[in-house]
Simulated scan of single mutants.
Amino acid sequence: MSIVDPSRVMWRKSSLSTGGDCVEVAVVPGDRTVARHKADADELYLVRDSKDPNGPALAFTRSEWDAFVGGVKAGEFG
């Protein structure tokens, strides 16, 4: 089951991205039937490989996305 049709959402990538090796992010309305195990699934952040736009996308809740971005800013993934 798919949350949304990935071809119908607005994908964004960093303005610092100059090559083809990057990820794209889209924010979409959540689907409680798909992500019912997640408490804050009203809005989901989708992440995909920009080189494979028809490939799979990972879905994260706002709190999961915020934790990831915080880790990136703190240098946890160096």
Rank of each mutant, 00 (worst) to 15 (best):
A57R: 01
P6E: 04
F77K: 11
V34G: 03
W65Q: 04
V34A: 13
Y45G: 01
D31T: 05
S15M: 07
A74G: 11
A57S: 14
V69C: 11
K38N: 03
G75C: 15
S50K: 12
R48W: 04
A57E: 02
V23L: 14
K73I: 14
T33S: 14
V34E: 11
D40V: 05
V9T: 00
G30D: 01
M10D: 08
T61R: 08
E76R: 15
V34W: 03
R8A: 14
D21L: 13
V34C: 14
L16N: 12
E43F: 01
T61Q: 05
T61K: 02
E76K: 15
K13Q: 13
N54T: 13
M1E: 06
A67G: 12
D40L: 00
L44G: 00
K73P: 10
P29R: 10
V25P: 01
H37D: 13
S14I: 03
W11Y: 06
G78M: 15
K73G: 12
A41I: 02
T33Q: 14
L16C: 11
D40W: 01
D5L: 02
M10L: 06
K73Y: 10
V69T: 15
G70S: 15
L58C: 08
D42I: 01
T61C: 04
I3V: 11
D40N: 08
D52F: 11
P29V: 06
P6M: 00
A41Q: 08
L16R: 15
E76C: 14
A59P: 04
L44W: 01
D42E: 15
V34T: 11
V9L: 00
D5K: 05
N54W: 12
R62F: 09
D40Y: 03
E64C: 03
